[in-house]
Design a protein around this nucleic acid. Structure first.
Lengths: 212, 212
DNA sequence: ATATTATATGACCACATGGTCATATTGTCA
DNA sequence: TGACAATATGACCATGTGGTCATATAATAT
């Protein structure tokens, strides 16, 4: 955690530092990201930086935690209404929300993508023990629930489906970040919805030609 | 491409350099990977290195090209017998081969995984223009072919299914590298086959409970 | 006004990086 | 043997890194 001095800073200055750090970590990975660069971009001297944070790792974990918290906050509303929805609609909501998140907070989304690529074991571990794993358990809960209600076939392998959904989720996010980086979301909204429906259609109905 | 001097080297020495470079690039990413480290591990002086390669990038592209070529060689036999197989069996073969490849050549597989995470745009581009994109077009060919033969529903969205398969493929590879890094493949073979079948079953039949 | 505490600051450190280059060594022809 | 090219080598360079620290400044309390 950052030192008290950091939180005593005026909001402007604190946010400047946070933004510069997010910028850096969202495009560089833990080892390649540079503290000098962050200092330069937020116009604070090197010495001050180490008055605010103990470490590079300290900063990294803090920034990642902010992103994770924001994502959870963003999704929590959607998850609250899950019990009224079919599994298909739950998935649809999750995918659409994911894309909206990437569009609304590209910085946070980029941070998440960068984190999923992170090579430095220490950095990765430090973040994971801080903000706990949730997406995997969320998928598994949803699947088990839908099996119980008989909505999906109970013979479907839960962990296989979970892996499939997770990898699909991150692929779609990456796809969004790459392709719609600067295109207006509103403009592409219909295309995106169609694409999500195509994906979900495959997962729910399979690709095999129906016999009749 | 490496300079002529490099190819004039005795095989032992050349392979030593190649192995050290693979080791480094498979665990570090282009920017973080260190030429000094590669020199140290292959016991060649810095000056000699630059007698063999013009650049860090030169080495990187060369190593990645080797890995790509090996992977193509490994898969080409399987792809040759595709026309005798149903799409399901084609996919199964592809997944199983992918896992066998990761097990037989963990170094190459790790290199590929590392490359898919690469941040440095220049490095990524240099490799892509060298060894051409094939997996995406392969999937699309397979899908279109199966649609033509009526094996899968022609209403299935080709690009959605292709994205799904690609992301699944890399997820499975990553899963393999992480989990079975040191466990014997033979020992886990049955589990792996079961898992692959579970995944393919979902994709072919969907997860929705059949009405009868 | 004085003493005490909290910040701000940038020169500085040891180390690592990718890359160069003058020189030494070896190999190959005549 | 001598001449010429190919190769080997490590000291060296500029630059960047994460991190430190003595000192300067500001804020607060007595």
């Amino acid at each position: 955690m950052p030192k008290e001095t950091f939180f005593n800073l005026p909001d402007d200055k604190r946010n400047l530092i946070i933004n510069a750090a997010m910028e850096e970590f969202s495009k560089a990975g833990y080892n390649t990201a540079s503290i000098n660069q962050i200092c330069r971009n937020s116009a604070i001297p090197k010495g001050s930086f180490y008055q605010y944070f103990t470490d590079k790792l300290d900063l990294y974990v803090y920034i990642m935690t902010l992103a994770i918290e924001e994502k959870i906050r963003f999704f929590s509303a959607a998850i609250m209404e899950f019990h009224n929805l079919t599994l298909l609609d739950q998935f649809r909501l999750l995918f659409i929300k994911g894309m909206e998140f990437a569009k609304k907070h590209p910085q946070y989304a980029a941070l998440g993508e960068q984190f999923s690529k992170e090579n430095d074991g220490t950095a990765k571990l430090a973040v994971i023990t801080e903000g706990n794993r949730q997406s995997e358990t969320l998928f598994i809960q949803m699947i088990n629930n839908a099996k119980a209600t008989g909505e999906i076939d109970s013979k479907v392998d839960t962990s296989a489906l979970s892996l499939l959904l997770q990898s699909l989720n991150s692929a779609v996010n990456q796809y969004m970040i790459d392709k719609f980086g600067d295109i207006s979301y509103e403009h592409a909204k219909e295309d995106i919805n169609r694409f999500v429906d195509s994906l979900l259609n495959i997962i729910f109905n399979g690709i095999r030609k129906k016999s009749n």
